[in-house]
Write a protein that binds this DNA or RNA. Structure first.
Lengths: 175, 175
DNA sequence: TATCCCTATTCCATCATAGAATAGGTTTAT
DNA sequence: ATAAACCTATTCTATGATGGAATAGGGATA
């Protein structure tokens, strides 16, 4: 269970368009884009870029300019692209409430940006939630009180709300 | 916005009964107790104990024994108790989904353990959620599509599920 | 013409984190 | 009988995350 890092999201943004750290920062700060999804500091972005370059998912090249400070523009590699696609089309995503809130929405955001079909992504998420929900409902029958069942009830409710919300993700933007 | 740490929960457990780190560890690992709420490593418990002692919320004393290894038993101080009570009866708790999942349930767990009334805690949480819900619903009207409104819709759904779940918290354990 | 803000990145100190190391006692198995 | 494995109990260590300061030059503002 890896932690919640924006690596693949940044990879997706770089696939859409080669950019440097400051551009990405703006995207992650803008509430209309990913500002409501991630709360990232400056150094986090640059650390991810460094890591992605180490894995050779991206390559950076220095841009010299008279009008603006030196900057490094990163572009995605073929290896990075295959990693990104694997992440986008993950056949069995996590049904963790937190991951849905952050990772699933990020996946949708990137898929829309790249013009990828979003229906399979939503469908995979729906299946994962459905499975987890029925697992929890079975588990629920064995514990009738206490903190244990309270947590289970809360998560069941949360997954129910997510299942009701998932169809809204299909709605296309009107431009 | 402070991070999610089990400091006050440990303070509550020590108020219930003086204990040492290994005892607390067992409680945080037992799924019937706090195992479903927190995922803590060994060192985290001991770090919190160190921090709480630095703040003089607790005092540790070494216990010598022939049959078991040396250990340090911690007990709460008057200052610690006042901090604990302030946390338990927080008049306006966070309406963050994550904090409810972790902090609110912890508060309930500790209140039950100490024989404190839980109704005011639940009621305060309900008010906070209600306020946040109406704030989000207003906000919702201004953005009609995109990632921004998707996030808002998800959180609205989650808070709705929480409001429906809160009454279940009142139900007493049958022993 | 001094001050502030914007672009753009690096640096730094602190804190969190998981798990290994330690160490003595007890149970289990051969 | 004795090695192996496990339980109690805590500390240590290495890695990495984290937020914010530092840097630095250019342009805008007063």
């Amino acid at each position: 269970m890896s932690a919640l890092t924006p690596d693949m999201v940044i990879l997706g943004l770089l696939h859409h368009k080669p950019q440097h750290g400051y551009d990405l920062l703006a995207c992650f700060h803008d509430p209309e884009q990913l500002g409501r999804v991630w709360k990232l500091s400056t150094s986090q972005i640059y650390n991810v870029l460094k890591r992605l370059e180490q894995h050779t998912y991206i390559i950076g090249r220095a841009i010299e300019s008279d009008t603006s400070p030196a900057r490094i523009e990163y572009h995605i590699t073929a290896l990075g692209e295959s990693q990104l696609m694997a992440w986008l089309n993950h056949p069995y995503p996590s049904a963790s409430v937190r991951k849905i809130r952050v990772e699933f929405i990020s996946r949708l955001h990137i898929a829309r940006l790249l013009g990828h079909p979003i229906t399979p992504i939503i469908e995979a998420q729906r299946r994962a939630c459905e499975d987890e929900l029925s697992r929890l409902q079975t588990e629920r029958e064995h514990a009738l009180f206490g903190t244990y069942s309270l947590v289970t009830d809360l998560v069941i409710g949360q997954l129910g709300a997510i299942m009701a919300w998932l169809p809204l993700c299909e709605i296309e933007e009107k431009s």
